[in-house]
Nucleic acid binder design. Structure first.
Length: 562
RNA sequence: GCCCUCGUAGCUCAGUUGGAUAGAGCGACCGCCUCCUAAGCGGUAGGCCACAGGUUCGAUUCCUGUCGAGGGCGCCA
């Protein structure tokens, strides 16, 4: 890595100047402006105070030392001092030609790969919607985010398990079953019930012996056939829609399974043994306020029934028991208040605070051509995720959900997402890939074969468009590492848009296969195009979006409408 | 009242452990097709980075406060 070479050289220059400075404070950054060079160092400004000298004077000394032929790192063209004391390094294009060679030497799945995770096991739990109804549009964001994060962590050396927690017991399930029963009997949904449109729709699917049967038992753990049917119906829906979205789970973990296994009782016993649970007012409490929570929380109600918290703790205890070094939970915004008590509970069980992370995904506001899609929460109106995916397609849905950071509320415009035009980022990026395939076809059609890389003169690549493309590719490994570390897959879509943009500029200004292009240049450009293809496929793979070889061509009428 | 996430161009959003003249796309306006898909490319206009202090050589970034938006504060899940 040239960055490391430059950092080493800079440290040597500081040594030579007799200046001691904390090495970690010396950083090399990519300047925002091209004329500031390829890399910029702040070392002189950082060291100025300790050295008691003006930063620019120091910078000049460092620059002079680095320009000495004996000290000059590879590819360095010139070094300048600028601004308040930056040392700017300008590199020769040859360093980017080396980047090209590195990129085409990788298959897409290897590009940006690292060993940051060191093979540790991470469990990513996401979606985990209650099996009391269909997934809605908001779940799509969590589903896509969780899956993309999983892909990022896999790329960076983690062993990933994708997990869905099924809340298949408790009061919500009983309300759900009662709602189905009421709808089947043509009666109004009970006060605490679910009143979405899907209830009546699903009720019509009930087999007659269930639809006509007696109302479900009000409580108890007796098996209620109607509830079982409803559970299966909802889970089938979830699995099906997630499949459409290209999201697949390794584990569907049943809350109910922990009753039979004794995991819930064992967890309570564990908490008591650690002295972090106590009895008061007939209930059992968790001493969560000792672990950063606002107040203590009830684990078992005075009536003897556990709250939702206890099975959740048992569930996370189970995950630790399966050997995961890191647990990541992806939750909707309406659960963020739940984070401190969960973290407190896991700390109370003796786990490292860093081993549990909760990512909160903010809301998704649906729009259609700029107009908000209004829903009545009281009437239980939702936009089903299935409808979103059906309307805009898997690729567009995924890419759009991943366009921005999950900690800001998202505006998702259905019309924009499905539009096949330049204002839709997913098509902009995919179109770049299709253009590459088109160039390859064109070359084949012209009988031009791409020669082995070692026979090609990459020094032919000097056009600013060509270099800009290589600069974007050069950054990819860092972007991947950063996106994984900060749990931000939106940084991948941002990079893809950048790369695609630079490719479209190249495509416009630099023909690859044409009579006007020298054959040697064609060869170099064919390799540049191949490197770009590897980058696009690699990035698209991280977000689970396809890289098509051709796009549907709009006819003239449609184009005129655009 | 307390907590969480935010507040950046007309709109949707980026903004790299604090860096130089704050960016992209869309929208608006002006240009560009004998040649690999014009679903593209180039240019112009558009900003008190919500506001006020503080830390720093340097703050959109870190700290405090104010205002504004959304969400959360149950022996509900």
């Amino acid at each position: 890595m040239i960055r490391d070479q430059l950092t080493d050289a800079l440290a040597a220059a500081l040594d030579a100047a007799g200046i001691e400075v904390d090495r970690s404070r010396i950083t090399l950054e990519r300047p925002a402006r091209r004329e500031h060079g390829d890399w910029s160092a702040n070392a002189a400004m950082v060291a100025a105070k300790a050295a008691g000298r003006p930063p620019r004077e120091l910078a000049a000394e460092l620059a002079a030392w680095l320009e000495e032929p004996a000290n000059r790192p590879a590819h360095v063209e010139r070094i300048e001092v600028a601004g308040p004391g930056f040392v700017n390094v300008h590199l020769a294009p040859s360093w980017l030609h080396d980047v090209l060679t590195e990129v085409v030497g990788c298959i897409p799945a290897e590009l940006g790969a690292s060993d940051d995770g060191a093979g540790r096991a991470v469990n990513i739990e996401f979606v985990s919607a209650n099996p009391t109804g269909p997934l809605h549009a908001g779940h799509g964001r969590g589903a896509t985010y969780g899956d993309a994060l999983a892909r990022l962590l896999e790329r960076t050396g983690w062993q990933v398990t994708r997990e869905f927690y099924v809340n298949d017991r408790g009061t919500q399930m009983r309300h759900y079953a009662a709602s189905l029963a009421a709808a089947a009997a043509g009666q109004p949904v009970p006060e605490d019930g679910y009143r979405g449109e899907y209830i009546t729709r699903w009720a019509t699917e009930l087999p007659s012996e269930l639809a006509d049967g007696p109302p479900p038992a009000a409580d108890g753990d007796d098996v209620d056939p109607l509830l079982e049917w409803g559970l299966t119906r909802a889970l089938d829906d979830h699995r099906d829609v997630l499949d459409l979205l290209g999201v697949h789970f390794d584990v569907w973990f049943s809350e109910r399974s922990m009753v039979g296994s004794g995991a819930i009782d064992a967890t309570l016993a564990d908490l008591r043994q650690r002295g972090v649970a106590y009895d008061s007012d007939g209930a059992v409490w968790l001493r969560s306020s000792d672990f950063g929570d606002d107040k203590d929380r009830v684990l078992v109600r005075s009536g003897g029934e556990p709250t939702y918290l206890l099975p959740d703790i048992a569930y996370h205890r189970d995950k630790y028991g399966r050997g995961f070094a890191l647990l990541v939970d992806v939750w909707g915004a309406d659960h963020h208040g739940y984070v401190p008590r969960m973290a407190a509970a896991l700390a109370a069980l003796g786990h490292e605070p860093d081993s549990f992370e909760a990512v909160i995904t903010q809301l998704v506001n649906l729009q259609r051509d700029g107009e908000p899609v209004r829903l009545s929460k009281r009437a239980g109106e939702i936009v089903e995720l299935r409808d979103v995916v059906d309307e805009v397609g898997t690729d567009a849905a995924r890419f759009t959900f991943l366009l921005q950071s999950v900690n800001t509320a998202q505006t998702f415009d259905l019309e924009l997402a499905k539009r096949k035009s330049m204002d839709n980022p997913v098509y902009y990026v995919q179109y770049a890939h299709a253009r590459i395939a088109s160039i390859v076809r064109k070359a084949e059609g012209a009988g031009i074969e791409r020669l082995p890389l070692e026979q090609v003169d990459l020094a032919q690549l000097t056009h600013e468009r060509e270099l800009a493309l290589l600069r974007a590719l050069e950054q990819f490994p860092e972007v991947v590492a950063d996106a994984a570390r900060t749990r931000g897959p939106h940084k991948i879509t941002a990079w893809l848009r950048e790369l695609a943009g630079r490719f479209h500029g190249f495509y416009h200004d630099c023909y690859v296969v044409a009579d006007s292009v020298d054959p040697e240049l064609t060869q170099a450009r064919l390799w540049l195009v191949e490197a770009t293809r590897v980058g696009l496929v690699s990035g698209l793979d991280l977000v689970g979006v396809s890289a098509p070889d051709a796009m549907d061509v709009l006819d003239d009428d449609q184009r005129a409408v655009d």
